[in-house]
Each structure stands twice: as C-alpha cells, then as structure tokens.
C-alpha cells in the first residue's frame, strides 16, 4: 500500500469516530503561553494550517513580554502549555514544580550562525571573555538560557564568568544601550541580532556565537505542561503533540523558503526584509535526557546547581523521539 492510500484509509476510519467530538464548537480550547519569537513558528504553523483543528483543539495563544507570567501562570492553571527556555523550566523543577516536557521547541544549530550572538561596540577592543572581566554585559534576564550560554562563552574564551557584571536589559532596548555605552557587550537573540546589525551596523560588531561555540546543537527552549494535567488528560496532550509536530514538519520542510519567513513575519510582525538576515534555530520535536543532563551540568557549573530529578522522568511521551 502506498503511503497516501494508507493515510487516506486511516482518515476514512478515523473520521466517523472523531467527527462528533470535533464538530464545530466542540473544539477543546487550550491556552498556550508564548513569547513573540522565532522559536514558536511551528506552533503558529500548526494553528494556521489547521493541524490543531484537525485534532479537535483550538489554540488560544497568550503573549507575555519577557515570559514572566508564563511558568507561574502554568502553575496557577492559567495555561495548559507554556513555551519557555530550558533554564527557567529546570529552575522551576528544582523548586519542586511538576513541569513535564511535552515537546521540544528550539535548539542551536551545529555551526554558526546561531540564534544568540555576542555584540560589542566597534573599536572597544573586546574580543574574548577575558576582555569582559570587570565589564558590563547585558542579558535579557539573569539565570535563563541566554545568560547561561553567555557565561559559558566567557569561560570558553578565557574569562572568569564571576567577574563579568551582568545587567538585565530587555532585547528591544539592547542595541541602544550598547551603542549608547550603558553596557560594554550584550547577548542578543534573533531577530534582535539582525535588527541591531541592520540599524547600528556601523557601530556594533559580533564577536561570538554563545550557542554553537559552547554547546553545538545545544538545547534552548521547550513546551511544558503540568504533570497532573498530563496524567488526567493524556489523550488531549497526545493530540496536541501530534498537531504541533505536524507544524514542526511543516516548518522544517520550508527551511530557506519564503513561505516560512512569511509565516514568522505574520505572527511576530518582524519585517520580512529583516527576517532574510536572521538566523533561525533548529526545530526539534523531542526532548532528550542527554540534552537535559547537559543543561543541568552547565547550570551547576554556573551556580545554578541543586537536586534535580532524573531527566528521563521529566519527559512526557509526546516529547520522546
């Protein structure tokens, strides 16, 4: 049997059973907390292409600026699923919160360009982590993946991360803060790297790739849900995972194509022209024990250690490859 015929057959069998539940108005609403960044492209693809609707799910995204309300909102029951960076998730887990990974979201590519970049003012003479000692380094938040990869880069390039003064600056204000001299270096994530080089290119330059230079292919962000919700509504999350992963396929099949950039521009409002100079992350479906072990080890190295449960126990079946 050819693939298409098998799919058609499966669809034909599934439809009579599924139809009543998925009838108009009977969609299960799931509220998902997101950040308006490139990493959530598969989620938006799956929404726009109707993959969620086909699974009987209606996704209601809620954008939070710095991701500040995401994980607390998950604990409080405001969201079913939250997109967040892995460090913030693991810090919550360390505090005893029952987060479970339901899908991967983004990770670094194996080689540059990657989604984080370290920028300095031209002529500042700063080239390495060692040069950054005693200087002010901007990160959007302390103790998240951006900061962690930044510290790893400092150490990798010969600096003592404890001697670097981290300053919290939101991404949208980083370029002005750096160009204006309020900070000496800044860790940007895309598309702010592209934006900064586009607008301040005459004054700023890139000196490092904190992701691919310290952890090639390293993990960045995931989708999480609460363990008890998963235990009670496993079927719903199976459907969620299937739909989201169709979105991942949709995105991965269109790497380097205008259709993908148009999708990202539509939900993020980043101008299309800028997206053409923007590095995209890799979009994984799975979350692996190995990547979680790597992140826990890195976190421990940079002062975020503690008692973490076994990585495998944190991964829900939808995120197992």
């Amino acid at each position: 049997m050819s693939l298409t015929r098998r799919t058609a057959l499966a669809a034909a069998l599934a439809t009579p059973l599924a139809a009543p539940a998925f009838a108009q108005g009977a969609l299960t609403r799931m509220r998902v907390s997101v950040i308006p960044v490139l990493d959530v492209a598969p989620l938006h693809a799956a929404i726009r292409e109707g993959f969620f609707a086909a699974e009987g799910i209606e996704i209601d995204t809620s954008t939070t600026a710095g991701g500040a309300t995401g994980l607390p909102g998950l604990v409080a029951g405001q969201f079913r699923v939250v997109f967040s960076n892995v460090v913030s998730i693991m810090l919550g887990v360390r505090e005893g919160l029952d987060f479970r990974f339901v899908s991967g979201a983004s990770r670094a590519k194996d080689s540059p360009p990657d989604i984080l970049a370290l920028l300095v003012r031209k002529g500042s003479g700063i080239r390495t982590g060692r040069d950054l000692e005693g200087k002010r380094l901007a990160s959007n938040t302390r103790n998240n993946i951006v900061w962690l990869r930044g510290m790893a880069w400092v150490e990798k390039t010969g600096g003592d991360w404890r001697r670097v003064n981290t300053v919290e600056v939101p991404f949208p204000q980083m370029a002005d803060a750096l160009a204006g001299g309020q900070v000496d270096a800044a860790i940007f994530s895309e598309p702010f790297v592209a934006a900064a080089l586009e607008t301040h290119g005459d004054r700023l330059e890139r000196i490092g790739w904190p992701m691919s230079e310290t952890a090639p292919g390293g993990t960045n962000a995931q989708y999480v849900a609460m363990a008890d919700d998963l235990a009670r509504n496993g079927d719903l999350f199976d459907r969620f995972g299937r739909a989201l992963h169709k979105g991942v396929d949709w995105v991965n099949e269109r790497q380097g194509q205008p259709a993908l950039l148009e999708l990202i521009s539509a939900f993020s409002r980043v101008p299309l022209a800028r997206l053409q100079n923007t590095a995209l992350p890799a979009y994984p479906k799975a979350v692996t024990s190995a990547e979680l072990d790597e992140i826990v080890a890195t976190m421990t190295r940079y002062g975020l250690g503690g008692r973490y449960p076994a990585s495998a126990s944190l991964i829900f079946r939808t995120a197992r490859g």
Binding site: P36, T61, T63, A65, T69, F171, A195, S268
Partner: peptide, 24 residues
C-alpha cells in the same frame, strides 16, 4: 494588557516592541 494576552493596545505595544518596529 501588556502583562499577557493578545488583546488591546497594550499587547500591540509589546508585539511591536519585540518585532523591533519603532514607528508602530
């Protein structure tokens, strides 16, 4: 509206800030 959600002028402000669209 800037805290969360997709509605209203506040959410538009956040979106445009993240998209780097200063004119908007």
């Amino acid at each position: 509206e800037m805290i969360a959600g997709e509605q209203g002028i506040g959410s538009y402000l956040v979106l445009m800030q993240f998209a780097g669209r200063a004119p908007e």
